[in-house]
Structures are given as C-alpha cells and as structure tokens.
C-alpha cells in the first residue's frame, strides 16, 4: 500500500475527519443519553439533558455533513452502503428522530408519564444509535458481499454476526465512557459524586469490549493489520491509544475532568485512525470477491468535483471550527437551568 497524496486520499482523510469529529462530539451526548435512566430524580435528569442541551444539535451536523460529503466525494460508497444496509439505516433514522424529539419534548409538559416516556425514548434511542453505528463499522471491517456492479448482494441478516454485534457493543461502551466523563465535567455536588463513581466502571466495561474486539479483529480479519506490517511506525498510534485511555483514571483521580474528557476523546480519535488506516485504500471491502471492493478510486467523483469540494472545505472548515469552539466556550462550566432550558 502506498500513500499518494492525491485528491482521493485527501477526501478519504476529510471524510474520516468529519466522522471522527462526529464520534468525538455526538459520542459524548449519545453517552450521556446511554446513562440517562440511571440518574434518578427530575431535576437531575434535566441537568443531564441540559448538559448537552445547547450542543447536541450542532454535534449531529457533523454526521449530516459527513453524509453529504460522502455523497459528493464517493457517491458509490454512499449509494452502496445506504441501500445495502437499508433496514439497519431505517432503524438508525427512526432512532435519530425519536432522540431529537425526546430531548425537545421531555420537559415541555409536567406529567410524570410524559417525562418518563421521553426519558426512556431518549436513552433507548441513544444506545440504539451507538449500537447501529458500531454494527455498520463492524460490517465495513468484515466486508460485505458486493457484485461486479458495486451493488450489495447480501441480505439484512448477513449484517448481524457475532463480530458485528461485538463492535456495536464496543461502540456503546466507548460512548458511555466518553459521556459519563462529560457529564461529570458539567455537573457539581451530589450528582457529580455519583457520576464520578461510574467513570471507572465505564472505563473497565470499555476496555473489556475493546480488547475483545481487537483480538477478534486480529484473528478473523487480519487484512486490517496489513498496513501496520508495511509501516511499523503506525503502531505508534495503537500505543498512543492505550496511553490516552490509561490516562483517564489518573485525571479523574486528580479532579481534572476536562483532561479526562480530552483523553477519552483522544482514545476515540486514535481508535478511528487505526480503523481507517487498516481499511485504506478501500472504503467498503467486498467479502467474498475482494476485486469488487469499493476503493477511494473506483468509488470516487470526478477529479474536478473533488477539487471544487476541497475549495469548499478549505473555505468552510475555519468557520466551522470557529463556531464550534465559540459555542463550547460560551457554554463552558457547570450546567445552569433557567427559563429557556429543556
């Protein structure tokens, strides 16, 4: 495998950046959702909800833009994956719908049953979204049956295997850890003490899942390791990944929740970097018949379009980073509930 720094490679990296940005940002708000039901009491749950209140919608834009960029830069990947995973994606969309309205609707009415219903909807959909994302990721690693015409030729049940379920659960664990740390950072008092005591458990849960997934990948899908044999320097990322995760309990112990959050975020970034390097230059591996795989070349738009899109990205990204950083700066610190809160 050689890296030629052409437009196709740049766009592989940019799509990777958008989806990693999504995992880093929406990852924590999905994680907050995944532990929402463990938090008891109405005020406490409102604090949980409002910890992500101003930002969850912006975080989801990373997914929407990632989808749009994939459509433009690699239309065959967009078309094959989304039509191939049709039923799974429909469940993902329904979960995204329920989650969005649950956040918006929950505190609008005072009835107990109403709030309970939306609490459950919010939490269940958060877990389901994380799981389905992981399931899709697992299928990309495993490879899916493709025909010569780039079309998916399997069925829905082909997508559900022990390995893909494992990756799904690992994704839930990863976001749960990330979200628990985020919630610890945004809360104070009793609630924070309680959340803090959950952080270590969530790290242990994640590490067990992560090691199992890594072993399964190495044993059953050794093609993911090829790039690391050719370029041993990439192994450094795996080491950094472990160091980042190992750093989390240390930061928590020293009451530096923000650094703990950055560490778990770094863990997500490195994990996805390992995944992307293992995949490159393929986007979707065909299994069986690897010659039908979708690569960054046979699935891409024209060079002209990739160039235009790069111009847009160069203009747009500084703005996006500026908004994102300013919003997080404006809403820094502990959650405060006021008349406009959820």
């Amino acid at each position: 495998m050689d890296f030629t720094f052409d437009l196709n490679t740049i766009w592989f990296i940019l799509i990777g950046v958008l989806l990693t940005g999504y995992a880093f940002l929406d990852g924590f708000d999905l994680g907050v959702g995944s532990i929402h039901l463990f938090v008891k009491g109405d005020t406490e749950r409102r604090i949980m909800l409002n910890s992500i209140g101003p930002v969850w919608d912006g975080n989801e834009v990373w997914l929407v833009t990632g989808g749009g960029a994939l459509f433009a830069a690699f239309p065959h990947v967009y078309a094959t994956v989304f039509s191939g995973f049709y039923s799974a994606f429909m469940f993902l969309l329904f979960a995204l719908i329920f989650r969005a309205v649950a956040i918006e609707f929950r505190s609008k009415r005072p009835m107990l049953w109403w709030r309970k219903m939306w609490d459950i909807s919010f939490s269940a959909s958060s877990i389901l979204i994380a799981f389905l994302m992981g399931l899709a990721l697992g299928n990309i690693v495993k490879g899916i049956p493709l025909g010569h015409d780039k079309e998916f030729i399997g069925s829905f049940t082909d997508l559900i295997t022990p390995y893909t379920i494992l990756v799904g659960v690992t994704t839930v664990a990863m976001f749960m850890m990330h979200g628990t740390i985020y919630a610890t950072m945004k809360t104070e008092g009793e609630l924070q003490v309680k959340l803090k005591s959950w952080v270590n458990n969530s790290i242990i849960f994640f590490i067990i899942c992560f090691i199992t997934t890594t072993m399964a990948t190495l044993i059953y899908f050794p093609h993911m390791t090829e790039p690391f044999k050719l370029h041993p320097e990439f192994f450094l990322i795996a080491i950094l990944n472990m160091l980042a995760i190992a750093n989390i309990p240390r930061e928590i112990h020293h009451n530096r929740e923000f650094f703990a959050f950055l560490s778990s975020g770094a863990g997500i970034v490195f994990t996805l970097a390992l995944f992307s390097l293992g995949l490159f230059p393929n986007f979707v591996i065909s299994n069986p018949n690897p010659e039908f795989s979708l690569t960054i070349y046979n699935a891409a738009s024209s060079q002209k379009t990739l160039g235009i899109m790069l111009t847009m990205a160069v203009i747009g990204i500084p703005f996006v980073l500026a908004y994102t950083i300013s919003i997080y700066w404006v809403f820094r610190g502990k959650v405060r509930i006021d008349s406009m809160s959820y």
Partner: peptide, 9 residues
C-alpha cells in the same frame, strides 16, 4: 452531492 455537502458546511 456537492450541493448537499455545501448545505452542511
């Protein structure tokens, strides 16, 4: 796709 991506960004 380009137009949708532009809408996002």
């Amino acid at each position: 796709g380009s137009a949708l991506a532009a809408e996002g960004i």
